[in-house]
Design a binder for these strands. Structure first.
Lengths: 201, 201, 201, 201
DNA sequence: TATGAATGAGTGTTCATTCAT
DNA sequence: AATGAATGAACACTCATTCAT
């Protein structure tokens, strides 16, 4: 159960430094804000030499980008794109599914959105929660556009619909994280109704 | 058109250094993000020595705070708080007025909200557009709460209602700024309907 | 009761800024150490503009020097040089007088010596309490040298004798200032005996 | 005369940067005074980048402290504390030993005391030559107190006795350094007699 | 006499990045 | 793969000094 060099290879080792470094970056962003990420801090937190960071990432930007990428991948992994594209499901129902997926993900990974926002912020971009580059978003865009065309949703820019969904759900989960009210005070149904009333034609 | 000393007094001259510095900060924030504001850059942009910044502002923090303050003051100046508190106006109409005011302000000062967001971000605060300390927001909170209690609005956290308003309007004006669609493509009425459908009971 | 310019001349005004500035410097030195004297701080303490300091003193060094000078003048003013030179008084008695004068001055102006020490320190000089430039010190040197020549004092360098006197008395008064023991615990007689036993042949 | 890697190992190479930096600090303190020590100057003198200083010392303060520590350690290393505590040696003889040790050290390391004084000054502490924290000084304090209690020394504060010893010896060695008189002009015996006459009952 | 505005050089400190080992 | 040493540029901030008014 050992490598040829006699060093035992544990799963952690496999996960290697790369991930540990990314984790450290995420931690720092969440606790101190993206602006205060530095290779020094990251290295210290991981317990490696500062220069070591450059063994795994071309430069600081690449490091931040990779963390950004990792979080967006999490969204991809969680969301079931297939069902959103499934023509057999009525449009209205698919929109509901989309909202539910955002809701579920946001509740399960409240940090992910924060990380994405923070890194965007550092780039000087607006911190809105619309990572347009995101693959699933293209799907979502198409879904919403179709729903608009079919007269299911109000004839407003897709980005407005998406902003609505993100803003409401993000604020709700943030509220929960801050303990502003108990988790069971508002059900998904209520949140969904709030959103849907706006979107629906 | 000259002072008795023969020095021409132009409008620019009237505008004190303090304002010029604040403007430079705002510019940098809008183009490069708040994280990359530095006294060096600011001074260079204004055309003064770096140390000069400290003649007008105690601190870098004080400088940023002053810019923040300036923008929030703009909001205060623009919004008509009185009418939101006017008991003679029906609640539903006052909520409409509130939304309209946010809309008008956002359209007139699209950068203001960005600046506030960015500076909040730097402070490590969440970037939501809910500067709760803002005096008008207390008024707004009370208004919305009253409307909830009277059964005019859905029984959801006030913060959710406010997030909704801000998110939609902010995205709309951002879209306009980016030229994603012409200004007259969507009227206030349509935007308002979108928001109101969600909020109303 | 007014000058020809109509400005009332009060005594404080006479004492003018010059002295106030020196006082401020002394205060700062005593509370924060000579190294942290700055024209900014001085001006703030006096309540004048920073640039104003340069109206009264050529530069910072001149300012410090003037404070130094002022304190050494205090010594001069207090000490009765005449009696130390009075040939009619026996040498031993005159040495006693000298020690007593240092003792009295040190007790009355404990800060003076600190100020002198601190300013010398800033100059990079050794902080010993032997301001050789001091006029009275020349007198003292001559007195001590004479006493050595006459076999009244031990045949050791004058500077050693003076260091002894200063060190003992300075430490004693510092102890008193720090409240290490009550003022009446040790009389001058005891201190004098301590010093004299060393010096005398 | 080379390591296996072909790199010549000279004595200088043995001496780590850390020591070189400390030496540079000491040099600057001795020539220009502690107040004018700056990381820039230090780095320039060592021939490294300024930022490099922070590779070896957390702080400027830490750097100064380390120099302070180094000098006090020298004292510790030189002095034979054991004999001062040896109950079999009569008190009077032990006091003599103490004085001799101070004398020997002061002659061998005339800069050490200056360095300690200067750094204490920068800290705003009184520059007296009584580093009370110093371990040997506790021993010395006890020794002197015992000698006072036994009627060997005059009944005066221990600090006065210590100040005496330091002041005389320090001035003497400073005089020597300044070349005010040849080394052999005054023997230890004479200096000792000077001090002892004051201290002894 | 007094001021405020201005400045350039300086301070200590942190950073991203490179390189020889 | 990993390190420690090194560096130059940047940072926020303070200072002594000057000058026009």
């Amino acid at each position: 159960m050992c490598g040829h060099d006699g060093r035992p290879y544990r799963l952690e080792k496999d996960m290697s430094k790369q991930l540990k470094i990314q984790d450290a970056v995420a931690e720092i962003i969440l606790t101190e804000g993206a602006a205060s990420v530095s290779t020094t801090k990251v290295a210290r937190r991981v317990g490696i030499a500062q220069s070591n960071v450059y063994l795994y990432f071309k430069d600081k930007q690449a490091l931040l980008d990779s963390v950004y990428e990792r979080e967006t991948q999490k969204i991809l992994a969680t969301t079931e794109i297939a069902s959103l594209q499934d023509q057999k499901i009525p449009l209205e129902e698919r929109v509901r599914l989309y909202i539910q997926q955002v809701y579920d993900f946001s509740l399960a990974n409240p940090d992910s959105l924060t990380l994405i926002q923070q890194i965007k912020f550092l780039r000087g971009q607006s911190p809105d929660l619309l990572p347009n580059e995101l693959t699933p978003n293209n799907t979502v865009s198409q879904l919403l556009q179709a729903a608009i065309d079919e007269g299911v949703l109000k004839d407003l820019p897709v980005s407005l619909h998406m902003s609505l969904v993100f803003a409401i759900i993000n604020r709700h989960t943030t509220n929960l994280q801050l303990g502003r009210y108990p988790v069971d005070k508002y059900s998904f149904k209520e949140i969904y109704q709030f959103i849907w009333d706006a979107m629906k034609r």
